[in-house]
Design a protein around this nucleic acid. Structure first.
Length: 750
DNA sequence: TTTAGCTCAATTTTT
DNA sequence: TTGAGCTAAA
């Protein structure tokens, strides 16, 4: 095909094939760094510019706002080459697209007001209040466990009455009981959780043929990014739009890589990608196997690693890029030295190669590992940015103020109400809230929680006179804010809430380092709010601005509810980036450090998990994702000793290290015989390293152990090599004991 | 109602 | 080790 279109010129043959195949189901198996975003954006440009498909009929769903933003930008850029004017297709996350549908179809939904979105902690509060209402002991089943199970069921689009009941299973029974109540409460609170956003749209389309037809004809060309990470409910939702059996047009293009599926534990169903061809008969398959990102050495290493997985499609990543440097593996004494070594390496590479700090990223398996790196980076005055951990909008003070906002919009939101009813302290304590909860439960949904508060404030038989007065004061405070809201700027409203409640004053009075940090966060929130408002008002004409102002608050609340902090990542900021391997997906950096490559930590092992094989494969995919983020240099590290929860553990190198061909790795093993030269707190460690060939003992950690004297146990850690190899074994009652391998090897079960 | 001190648990977390 | 959440005392 020789179409001379600007956005096709830079594509390779496979990419072009995927772009031009616009009618019918298409699955693109896109390896890491193979230009799938480029393919997708070119495809949309081609649909609009050449096929003359209105942007209105094109949909693209991604998993992060960041990916959506990037995609919009690149579609726009592709279209700029042509002279015609185009509006952009609908590009968004599953959640934002679904929220828009729900807002549009409001009259078909059980909500009385615009809904709010509950995050994890809101959800947990709701579950806990249901526990107390149903008088379920938190000791018998944990609210967190129930919450997780509810979410899992929602991922699988299972409704309460579809949950299988086994008479003897107490947890399952309680789960159904709470789940039912939880669903009722969501509606009563005008609230939705993340899972429900998807499920509700799915049910809406499933149960209303007219709405389904409407969206089928609207979204005629559907694109799904990261298809390997879709869950059951997302799959069903897509089938409502695209599957011919439901009347769909089957123009669905899914892009994914089963080797990068790392969210199984969160409900992602790898079968969605593995079974696409049978789900959509006659689908066309395109493989993008050429990697444009990394050096040959990195690609070869990653390919060797991932070959150890069994459940994958046949796909071989290759690259035309040069061989590049060898991967560098360092084995270090402990997590402190690990951080010292990484930072020393960063400084060295930065100055020798003239690289900016923004070229570097450090990936770890768990957020808890970030501290060591922070400490050393701060001391060395190297600017850094941490992703993950606590989201800005999850901070206590920000959640508090957002709860005020939410209550103004939606007084039915009992979770937010309970959060702020005594924040700052105004003498409405636990006892009072519990009493209100009882009244609320007795009203059986006929009154919102806010109405219950109002009622209790005016009925002397319900509470003491003092409490009633405090309740009335609270109610009139909220009413006052509600009255002011329509004619105030968001930032004015915000300051009003802070002033009237004395929130900041109290924090300042407290005067601790922590409380002052909270004040700073609130100031940052203020500027965020102003920025948002300016942005929004710019988009509206003056007249609209006046009439639409009340909506700004709901738009803001919605955006913050659906924001993640990877969205805020400024790749250009001259900082070293720290993040978990999970959050690294979709990003790339010239220099990558993967740290803590130790058995038990990475791969993380949980011996009681039901399918250790599958879990291990997911860990391996995670490793693959991490490695393929690196463009030029890839450092791998493991420590011999690590303090985990205050306990010293002897760590064995990760099996993943031994799955990388030796000839691709330069190994710098810290010479343990000179361990006295390791000066903690200095950065001289790097010099103390000699180049040796790595030698790994095979994975013993996690193996079962049966000692004639001590009985059954499990291998916790292993240290040393050959004659000196020692293992730590945990017996029942958390008792630990060390053995020399050469004496006990026969007691390890294979 | 508040708060100080204690116990207990503890991956990953696109939205 | 850290932190969240709960109990006991002010």
């Amino acid at each position: 095909m020789s179409l001379d279109l600007p956005y096709l010129k830079t594509l390779n043959d496979r990419q072009k094939e995927a772009v031009l195949y616009t009618e019918g189901p298409l699955i693109v198996l896109a390896g890491a760094g193979s230009g799938k975003t480029k393919m997708l954006t070119s495809r949309m440009a081609y649909l609009m510019d050449f096929k003359k498909i209105p942007s209105y009929n094109i949909l693209a769903v991604t998993f992060t706002n960041k990916a959506a933003g990037e995609m919009k930008e690149r579609v726009e850029r592709s279209l700029n080459h042509s002279n015609a004017f185009y509006s952009l297709p609908e590009i968004g996350t599953f959640h934002s697209v679904c929220v828009r549908i729900l807002r549009r179809e409001m009259e078909r939904l059980p909500f009385t007001k615009p809904f709010v979105i509950y995050d994890d902690s809101d959800q947990l509060s709701l579950v806990k209040s249901i526990f107390s209402r149903l008088q379920i002991e938190e000791k018998s089943v944990s609210p967190k466990g129930i919450q997780a199970s509810i979410n899992r069921l929602k991922c699988d689009a299972v409704e309460p009455d579809e949950v299988e009941v086994q008479a003897h299973n107490l947890f399952r029974k309680k789960l159904i009981e709470v789940y039912k109540e939880y669903q009722k409460d969501l509606i009563a609170n005008n609230a939705l959780d993340f899972g429900e956003i998807i499920c509700m749209v799915y049910r809406l389309l499933r149960d209303h043929p007219d709405i389904r037809a409407k969206y089928q004809s609207r979204y005629q060309y559907i694109h799904v990014d990261e298809y390997q990470d879709t869950n059951r409910s997302q799959y069903l939702l897509l089938s409502m739009l695209a599957d011919p059996r439901n009347g769909g047009h089957k123009n669905i293009c899914v892009v994914g890589d089963e080797d990068q599926s790392i969210y199984k534990w969160r409900g992602a169903d790898i079968r969605n990608i593995l079974d696409f061809e049978s789900d959509y008969p006659g689908s066309y398959v395109v493989k993008l196997e050429q990697n444009y990102r990394s050096t040959k050495n990195i690609i070869t290493a990653a390919s060797h690693l991932i070959k150890n997985n069994t459940s994958r499609k046949d796909k071989t990543l290759w690259t035309d890029n040069e061989a590049g440097a060898l991967l560098i593996h360092s084995q270090v004494l402990d997590e402190r030295v690990e951080a010292e070594t990484v930072v020393a390496d960063i400084k060295k590479v930065a100055s020798e190669d003239g690289r900016a700090y923004s070229d570097f990223a450090i990936f770890y398996r768990t957020n808890a590992q970030s501290r060591q790196f922070e400490d050393v980076l701060r001391r060395e005055k190297i600017p850094y940015q941490i992703l993950g951990g606590l989201r800005f909008y999850d901070r206590k003070e920000i959640k508090d103020i957002l709860s005020y906002f939410k209550v103004l919009l939606n007084p039915s939101d009992s979770v937010s109400l309970k959060r702020i009813i005594n924040v700052p302290a105004r003498g409405i304590g636990k006892t009072t809230v519990e009493r209100l909860d009882v009244i609320y439960g007795e009203a059986g949904g006929s009154k919102s929680f806010f109405e219950v508060i109002e009622m209790a404030g005016n009925d002397p038989s319900l509470t003491s006179a003092g409490t009633a007065k405090k309740l009335r004061q609270f109610v009139s405070l909220i009413h006052k804010f509600q009255d002011e809201q329509p004619r105030r700027l968001l930032s004015e409203l915000y300051h009003m809430i802070l002033d009237e409640t004395g929130y900041v004053r109290d924090l300042k009075q407290e005067g601790t380092e922590e409380s002052l940090a909270r004040v700073e966060n609130l100031e940052e929130f203020d500027s965020l709010l102003q920025e948002f408002e300016e942005d929004q008002l710019e988009k509206l004409s003056e007249e609209e601005a006046r009439s639409k102002r009340p909506d700004l608050l709901s738009i803001f609340i919605e955006q913050t509810s659906l924001a993640s902090d990877i969205d805020g990542l400024d790749a250009n900021a001259s900082t070293v980036k720290l993040m978990t391997l999970h959050s690294s997906k979709g990003l790339e950096f010239p220099v990558v450090f993967m740290v803590g490559m130790e058995e038990g930590l990475f791969p993380s092992t949980k011996p009681w998990e039901e399918s250790p094989e599958e879990d291990l494969e997911e860990e391996r995919r995670l490793c693959y994702v991490g490695m393929t983020r690196a463009r030029e240099l890839l450092f791998l590290m493991n420590a011999n000793v690590r303090r985990i929860w205050g306990q010293v553990a002897y760590q064995e190198p990760s099996r993943f290290l031994s799955e990388i061909p030796l000839e691709l790795v330069e190994s710098r093993k810290a010479s343990l015989s000179h361990s006295s030269q390791f000066k903690l707190g200095s950065s001289k460690v790097f010099i103390q390293q000699e180049t040796v060939r790595p030698s790994y003992s095979s994975g013993l950690v996690g193996k079962n152990f049966n000692h004639p004297e001590y009985g059954y146990g499990r291998v916790l850690a292993s240290e040393g090599m050959g004659e000196d190899q020692k293992i730590t074994v945990e017996f029942s009652g958390k008792k630990q004991r060390k053995f020399l391998m050469r004496y006990v090897s026969e007691f390890i079960s294979q």
